[in-house]
Each structure stands twice: as C-alpha cells, then as structure tokens.
C-alpha cells in the first residue's frame, strides 16, 4: 500500500481520554505512537461511508438464535471452593480479595 499523507484524526487529548477509559497507563512514546497509528486506521474506516446501509439491520446474532435461557435451577457442579476462587489472586486477605482502599 502506498503511503498517503498521514491525517492525524485523533487528538492527543482523545488518546489520553481513551487510555483512561481503558485503564491503560501509557508512556509518552506510546501516546505518540498510538496517536499516529490509530489515526491512520480510523482514517481507513471512512471507506465504510461509501456503503449505503439505509434500511439495513445491524447483525444482532449471526446464528439468528433467539430466546436462549435456562430454567431457574441451582447448579452445584460449577460452584468453586474458596481455595479455587482465591487461588490465582495476588491480593487477598483471609477469605476476601483485597485492593488498596478506594475511599
């Protein structure tokens, strides 16, 4: 693909905002890199404006299934023991998971 003149569609502010929403702490390098890369990719997306989607329904379920549900029953097979539940955590306190105080 030939290099087009690069449009910077996403502002630095937007990149920082996205990182906050996504709970990612980016380095300065990453902020600049993503600003360039995402702008190029998002620019490519404008291709879809060529497609007429009037009266077209968005895909809601590619299988066209509806009404999948189960009866109200307890499934004890899947219940995890306390040990299994806590096993993979790095931060626990007795029977609880823990985080630094959020208040």
């Amino acid at each position: 693909m030939k290099k087009k003149s690069k449009k910077i569609i996403l502002s630095r502010q937007e990149i920082l905002h996205l990182a906050k929403l996504a709970k990612l702490r980016l380095t300065e390098n990453e902020v600049q890199k993503f600003q360039k890369q995402l702008s190029a990719i998002v620019d490519y997306f404008s291709k879809l404006n060529e497609v007429n989607t009037d009266n077209v329904e968005p895909v809601s379920q590619i299988t066209e299934l509806v009404n999948e549900n189960v009866d109200d029953e307890i499934n004890s097979i899947r219940i995890l023991s306390l040990e299994e539940t806590l096993k993979n955590s790095k931060s626990k306190n007795n029977d609880f998971f823990k985080v630094k105080s959020i208040f």
């Binding site: 189960v70 109200d72 029953e73 307890i74 499934n75 004890s76 899947r78 219940i79 995890l80 306390l82 539940t85 806590l86 029977d95 609880f96 998971f97």
Partner: peptide, 28 residues
Amino acid sequence: KTKSKMFCGCPADHFAKKPNSICCPVCL
C-alpha cells in the same frame, strides 16, 4: 429471589453466607 443467579447456576441467596463461597467461573 430466584433460586439461582442471573447468568449462572450459583445460589442467588447470598445473605450471611461465608465470603466468596458461592462463586463459579461465570459470576467470578
């Protein structure tokens, strides 16, 4: 007050249960 939770079969009655004792891969 259904018997089971909204998206899995764990018991929905959680009041005064031992902490983290009614969890499964889905609700965890």
